[in-house]
Amino acid sequence: MLSLLNQYSRERFAWFLLFLSTAIFELTALYFQYGLGLAPCTLCIYQRCAIYGIMLGSLVGLLAPGKLIFRLIGILIWLVSAIKGFNLATFHAHLQFEPNLSDTCAINVQFPSWLPLDKWLPSMFNAYGSCSEKIWSFLTIEMSQWMIIIFAGYLLVGLVILFSQIFSSKKRSIWSN
Rank of each mutant, 00 (worst) to 15 (best):
87 N>L: 15
78 W>V: 05
55 M>D: 09
65 P>H: 01
57 G>N: 03
71 R>Q: 10
107 I>Q: 14
96 Q>Y: 07
70 F>S: 13
48 R>M: 12
146 W>H: 15
147 M>Y: 08
93 A>L: 14
137 S>A: 12
66 G>W: 02
81 S>Y: 00
75 I>N: 07
146 W>V: 10
136 W>S: 10
142 E>A: 07
116 P>R: 06
117 L>E: 01
75 I>P: 01
26 E>H: 07
113 S>F: 11
112 P>N: 00
128 Y>W: 12
44 C>M: 11
147 M>N: 14
94 H>W: 05
112 P>Q: 00
51 I>Q: 03
98 E>W: 07
88 L>C: 02
86 F>I: 06
75 I>V: 11
26 E>I: 15
79 L>K: 03
54 I>N: 04
56 L>V: 08
53 G>W: 00
47 Q>H: 06
67 K>M: 05
69 I>L: 10
68 L>V: 14
65 P>S: 03
33 Q>W: 08
131 C>E: 07
142 E>G: 04
150 I>M: 14
144 S>F: 02
108 N>K: 13
116 P>E: 05
99 P>D: 02
108 N>S: 14
99 P>L: 02
105 C>Q: 11
29 A>K: 11
128 Y>I: 13
119 K>D: 15
64 A>T: 13
56 L>I: 09
112 P>V: 03
53 G>V: 02
69 I>C: 04
87 N>D: 07
99 P>A: 04
60 V>C: 01
115 L>I: 14
105 C>F: 08
91 F>Q: 13
30 L>W: 06
91 F>T: 11
147 M>F: 11
63 L>E: 06
77 I>L: 14
49 C>K: 08
129 G>N: 04
44 C>N: 11
115 L>K: 07
66 G>Y: 05
56 L>H: 00
98 E>C: 13
134 K>M: 12
74 G>K: 03
138 F>M: 08
62 L>E: 02
48 R>L: 15
42 T>P: 00
136 W>V: 11
33 Q>M: 11
143 M>W: 04
42 T>A: 08
109 V>L: 02
132 S>I: 07
114 W>I: 10
48 R>D: 09
32 F>S: 07
121 L>P: 09
43 L>R: 03
145 Q>G: 10
126 N>Q: 14
129 G>S: 04
73 I>G: 03
52 Y>R: 06
76 L>N: 08
112 P>M: 00
113 S>P: 04
42 T>M: 01
